[in-house]
Design a binder for these strands. Structure first.
Lengths: 333, 333
DNA sequence: CTGTTAGCGCCTTCAT
DNA sequence: ATGAAGGCGCTAACAG
């Protein structure tokens, strides 16, 4: 009735059941499936939990029930600001449903992608959310074979591993290209990072112009500093540059700063467009035109899809296009 | 010898052992403790693993061995750029040692802190790394009782729950205050977020001045936008403002932008100091003076401490002060 | 509504 | 160097 547990051995459900005077499984149900247990029993178990300081062991439960209640979240690198809102929302929505996120970083490296995935799989996650598409064919095949629910995000393809929440990178590039052309800018340039998604946008942009466009490709991570050097590079091969499309708002900000440092007026002498609608974009001077992606929506939808699969609910729409929107501000006015 | 596993049931170690013609435990040792198994046996097991497509189940292993090889990482919010480098490094170092990070977000909320912690504990992490100190006394007590290795980070106290990697926020504030005083600025202001660490820095700053200092406290998240409004607010109650100390570089950037928008020259008419040395700080115009914290070092040390505890190695120094450094740039020249 | 019986997949302990 | 037994803590599948 008392003996609040010697601190040596943490209490198990067995202890709780003993203290509550019920069987093990009844204690289990009182905690995990209260609907089928009488109110008075539930109360006694609750008291026993408090008395013993019991903390459930989800590892053990998961072994039998084959549900770990963990979701693996795989990102190129945590520090890529772009993805944070979606990962944050994903984590929050999952947590609200009792699922935890297991974090993996690939460093944009295919070999590490495979290694990370294998480690993750050995923890038997109930689902996996990738930031970006899964690259390796072998990895894709393996994922399909294991049958874990998989959500790829931040991109678009007709043939995802399983489920997909994203948007077409090529369409973004084309839209920005069309936007530039509509304003009559022909001496245009691209400042871009080297990751696959950014390069798809570059291709889309060039498609809109029907030709190659001067490009400064900067090494990761995409930053203000890189934006400055990118503009310097672009101006070297195209001194009469009229407009620059950037693969991130950080890069675009660097372009703004470098333009200012060179006495180039934005937008009068140089128009600039970013990507991502970072929190600062609207508040720079000049305010930055950019492409808005609804990161939280991506996280939320990814969570929804993964959770639906985990619960065995049917998923009506495996592929969700969250779209995008060009937000026009002063930098392209 | 063949039958590459029906895709329905994933292979277990049992299957591997059968295919390799050894006992279960030998297969286990071949994979987990190869030193005590003959080379030829190891090779046969390796082949059997490939043939069966075996993926170890760390959940099951952890049940008996009581080591989950997971570390819980608890952050206020993932989107706080400040902490990213340390979390990223922590994740990487852990991964290199075969440990995965289980992510939890508290949203700067004490109630959620406790809830998140309980969920984490039910996954039996081998260690817990907190961003910031653990606030609730009950939570601290509970953590101590469970005996899990805990590392608190990004702050300093004489009485951590267990281990600590950080620096004194008050000292940072004092250093910035002393820095301002040494330059003769008396009409100074503070632009700060409302989190506990930022407020400690504010207190330190005021201690250096020996008096209260006009303060604009902005709601989270600390952003460029908030920096702009903070400067507006400060100028209202102190039109002759000479210098502003900001609780983040994002905020400081907003102050720079707002100053520029108002035609206030930085640093001639207004000096600005940030915090964090974000990647953009050095490349703004004017370049931003700020406080450098070595985030990756925090992540690395936290990983080192947690891993040492997990392996039962002695930890010589439970409290690690990584210090800080004011990086003087143009914004305070 | 409650209890009994079997394991989940692996690793620890003790034997050989 | 290898193996046989037992159990980690919990929950599905049946009883009653």
């Amino acid at each position: 009735m008392n003996a609040p547990m010697p601190p040596s051995k943490p209490a198990t459900l067995h202890d709780v059941a003993r203290v509550a005077g019920v069987s093990l499984i009844t204690a289990s149900r009182a905690l995990g499936n209260p609907g089928v247990v009488s109110a008075s029993t539930i109360e006694r178990v609750r008291l026993a939990v408090e008395a013993t300081g019991y903390i459930p062991n989800l590892l053990a439960g998961g072994l039998k029930s084959r549900r770990s209640r963990m979701v693996a979240g795989i990102v190129p690198a945590l520090a890529v600001a772009q993805f944070l809102p979606s990962v944050q929302t994903l984590t929050d929505v999952l947590a609200a449903e009792g699922y935890q996120l297991l974090l993996g970083q690939t460093g944009y490296d295919a070999a590490r992608e495979e290694a990370v995935l294998n480690t993750m799989l050995s923890r038997r996650p109930d689902g996996i959310v990738f930031t970006g598409l899964v690259h390796g064919a072998a990895v894709r095949a393996r994922l399909r074979r294991t049958g874990v629910p998989v959500v790829e995000t931040w991109d678009m393809t007709a043939d995802p591993v399983d489920m997909l929440v994203g948007f077409s990178q090529a369409q973004v590039g084309q839209a920005v290209g069309a936007f530039f052309r509509a304003r009559g800018w022909q001496r245009v340039g691209i400042a871009t990072g080297g990751d696959p998604r950014a390069l798809q946008r570059k291709d889309g942009f060039e498609a809109a112009f029907g030709r190659r466009v001067p490009t400064a490709q900067v090494p990761a991570p995409s930053s203000l500093e890189r934006g400055r050097s990118a503009l310097a590079e672009l101006l070297e091969c195209e001194p009469a540059l009229q407009a620059v499309a950037c693969s991130s708002d950080q890069l675009a900000q660097g372009v703004l700063v470098e333009a200012q440092a060179r006495g180039l007026h934005v937008p009068r002498q140089l128009a600039v467009c970013g990507f991502g609608n970072a929190d600062f974009a609207a508040h720079l001077v000049p305010a930055l035109t950019t492409v808005l992606i609804d990161g939280p929506a991506i996280g939320r939808q990814a969570a929804r899809l993964v959770l639906a699969r985990c619960r065995g609910e049917p998923v009506e729409q495996r592929i969700v296009d969250v779209g995008f929107r060009i937000v026009e501000r002063v930098s392209t006015a």
